[in-house]
């Protein structure tokens, strides 16, 4: 069952639309979906006020796919708490995409904003463009970060990717900002591009792989060895990599892999091996 949402106009103020959820749409008729409540700024609206809703192949047994045809960078909490089905956004998506998601797939052809996959438990989020800060991070103040699932960002991501991550996988095709894997408890983060530094601050366990440049390693990390390759989710990534252990300030035993070829500035660590 394919449900297409076309924005009726370009949204100027934030829209809170946690009702855009395949699990929720599955039980509802087109009329009921149209009446679902959203907030546009401080105004209560229905989904049909903002989107033109069309439904194809009305086979209720099939998994629900929601296609958002248009730019929804102001629309927040798309796919929040979804557990099954698929959402495709042809354009940019707003903040809190797939928040607390429990299953299913979200694909965005454009960019995603901050808090993508925040507190997610399972499922897959794939962003073809860039993403903002706090990817897979918990709510402000909380220590309950990403508890499973996969986030793939083909472009760049901002700061604090994978904050308090407990398990799961985050792949960033481009560069990341500062503090990638901050407070990480476990899980894996792979960055194919560069990092702006402070990687793995206060991490306790888990794995961060950075194939690009990093300005420096935190002083609370210690070099362990040089490895030719590193495994990420069963796949081999060619190195060689410097392997650091930390964050020792927290008695942590996290593994931070940083490309040797791209970081001649880290050569000084080799004398401690």
């Amino acid at each position: 069952m394919l449900i297409t949402l076309r924005p009726k106009y370009s949204f100027k103020v934030p829209v809170e639309a946690e009702c855009i959820n395949p699990s929720l749409f599955a039980e509802k008729s087109t009329m009921e979906i149209a009446k679902l409540q959203v907030w546009e700024g401080n105004r209560k609206r229905t989904l049909s006020d903002l989107f033109k809703i069309t439904r194809e192949t009305p086979n209720p047994l099939e998994k629900v796919t929601i296609k958002i045809a248009g730019d929804v960078n102001k629309v927040r909490r798309i796919g929040s708490k979804m557990s099954t089905g698929e959402i495709t956004v042809n354009g940019n998506a707003g903040m809190h995409l797939g928040e607390e998601m429990k299953g299913g797939i979200i694909k965005v052809t454009g960019n995603a904003d901050s808090w993508t996959g925040s507190m997610m438990k399972d499922g897959t989020i794939e962003i073809m463009g860039d993403a903002g800060d706090y990817i897979g991070a918990p709510y402000r103040g909380s220590t309950q970060g990403m508890g499973g699932g996969i986030i793939i960002i083909h472009g760049n991501a901002g700061n604090e990717v994978g904050c308090y991550m407990k398990t799961g996988l985050i792949r960033i095709g481009g560069n990341v900002g500062q503090f990638v894997g901050v407070h990480m408890r476990n899980g894996t983060i792979q960055v194919k591009g560069n990092s702006e530094g402070r990687a793995g601050a206060q991490m306790l366990k888990g794995k961060i792989v950075i194939s690009g440049c990093i300005p420096s390693i935190l002083p609370s990390f210690t070099i362990d060895r040089i490895t030719p390759t590193v495994k990420v989710d069963g796949e081999k990534v060619e190195g060689p990599f410097y392997r650091f252990i930390g964050d020792l300030a927290e008695n942590g035993n996290g593994k931070l892999f940083v490309s040797k070829a791209k970081n001649p500035n880290l050569g000084v660590f080799e004398e401690y091996l």
Binding site: P138, Y139, R140, G141, S142, Q144
Partner: peptide
């Protein structure tokens, strides 16, 4: 102030 996660 310390606990936004307690409130949300």
């Amino acid at each position: 102030l310390l606990r936004p996660e307690d409130h949300f």
